[in-house]
Computed example of a mutant assay.
Amino acid sequence: MWAFTSCSDEVRQAEIAEVIEEEPAPVVQEFGFTLNDYVVVRDTIRSGDSFGNILINHGVSHGDVFKIVQEVKDIFDPRKIVLGKPYVILKAKDSAQTPKAFIYENDKIQYTVVNTGDSIAAYKAEKPVTIKQRAVSGVISSSLSAAVEEEGLNFLITHEMSNIYQWSIDFFRLQKGDKFKLVFNEKYINDTIYAGIDNIEAAVFVHQEKPYYAFNYASDSTSGDLAYYDEEARPLQSFFLKAPLNYSRISSRFSPRRYHPVQKRWKAHKGTDYAAPHGTPIWSTANGVVIASSYTAGNGNYVKVKHNGTYTTQYLHMSKRAVKQGQRVKQGDVIGYVGSTGLATGPHVCYRFWVNGEQRDPFRQNLPSAEPIEDKLKPTYFAAIEPLKAELGKIEFKNI
């Protein structure tokens, strides 16, 4: 008997016999590792977690955990891991799945790698960041923050602009119709993930029909420190910030005679008290060197900064100090946090101000401006800002 097969049966049998080759999985690179080579565990620091317990739960022995901590403690302090921060564990692709690396994400960009395998070590690194420039404009209808939000911009733009223009424009007295144009840079991780504002390159803010220009420029090529100057090369910055923090109110001013709320007696109060919530960051009001970072029964946690041969400032009653003696700080650097240590009845910072070794009321001082650009450097400055000024000119102002 003859057996007949149709053409379709032959095709089907050929398909069954055909060996289909699967495409290899795409190579995934992250944190300097090829993730395809590992079993990848992603998680976040939870309440009650510790670095040791995390590793133990993933198969590392108590003895090895102790050894790892001792080896890496100068680079990675396991006591300072923060609730909610993401981490990644890379395990070997074997039956034991031994952890080879622990990666702690300090923030969106910075991370710390702890090699937990044969060669124990730790190092800090950063994800690849791309800077992209944007040009925008906005108009004030109610407030600067509302105008920034209307343009779909990061809220930190408001903070940056307030810092730039704090000595030129009173942002509590903006008028409807005031407007601005910006050229600024944004950060992107791996060219795609938004990671915040890098800096404002140039701006013009029209307030009460007067334009206020600002250009970001490093006048000192040695230090590389950036500052903002106007179209005439004049500094927008003052030598001192108006206040050492974002405060709720001034609870007590400099006075030759004040009733002390703790000591219950009349005495001079040679400082300015700024009330603010516990933990509010405290800034150095000018560039300088920390000459004291300590604790006394009266001052509590305090920091003292020498700015030059004339001016020194001190910040009292901190909950925590953030700088050490001998450390150089720049204007606006966080040097501590608001508290109520020492002789204090509530959270505040007592800001003290010395002129030539004598305590003074900072509100009564004719304080200097920031260092201007030297005359010999001005031609270089004008050449540097010319393309930025042209870029601002291309942006159309928005109107209400």
Rank of each mutant, 00 (worst) to 15 (best):
W2S: 08
F4C: 05
T5G: 00
S6I: 00
C7H: 06
S8D: 09
D9T: 04
D9N: 11
E10R: 12
R12D: 05
Q13M: 08
A14D: 08
E15N: 09
I16H: 06
V19Y: 11
V19L: 13
E21T: 09
A25D: 14
P26S: 04
Q29E: 11
F33K: 08
T34Y: 06
L35K: 02
V41D: 05
V41Q: 04
I45R: 01
G52V: 01
N53C: 02
N53R: 12
L55Y: 09
L55M: 12
G59F: 06
V60I: 15
S61R: 10
V69D: 09
K73S: 10
D74C: 01
D74A: 05
F76C: 08
D77Q: 02
L83E: 11
L90Q: 10
D94A: 08
S95C: 03
S95M: 12
A96T: 12
K100N: 11
K100I: 12
A101V: 11
A101W: 02
I103W: 06
E105P: 01
D107Y: 07
Y111L: 11
V114L: 13
N115S: 12
T116H: 10
D118M: 05
S119I: 14
A122W: 02
K124E: 15
K124Q: 15
E126S: 13
T130V: 14
I131L: 14
R134L: 14
R134H: 15
S141D: 14
S145R: 06
L153K: 03
S162T: 15
I164A: 02
I169R: 05
F171A: 06
F171C: 05
R173H: 13
L174V: 14
Q175E: 14
K176L: 04
G177F: 04
D178T: 05
K179A: 08
E186T: 12
K187L: 13
D191G: 14
T192P: 07
Y194T: 06
G196A: 09
G196W: 14
I197E: 07
I197L: 15
N199Y: 13
V206Q: 08
H207N: 14
H207K: 08
K210F: 04
P211T: 00
Y212N: 15
G224Y: 05
D225Q: 10
Y228Q: 10
Y229H: 05
Y229C: 06
L241I: 11
Y247D: 09
Y247P: 02
R249L: 10
R258S: 06
H260Q: 04
K264T: 07
R265S: 11
W266T: 03
K267F: 02
A268R: 07
K270M: 14
D273Q: 05
P277Y: 02
I282S: 03
T285E: 07
A292Q: 12
S294V: 02
N299R: 00
N299F: 00
N299M: 01
Y302A: 00
Y302K: 01
K306I: 01
T312H: 06
S319K: 04
A322Y: 00
K330D: 04
Q331F: 04
S340N: 05
A344S: 11
T345I: 03
H348C: 03
C350D: 14
Y351G: 00
E358N: 10
E358P: 00
Q359C: 01
Q359Y: 05
R364T: 10
N366V: 04
E371W: 01
K376F: 10
K376R: 13
L377W: 04
K378N: 09
T380A: 15
K389V: 06
E391Q: 15
E396N: 14
F397N: 13
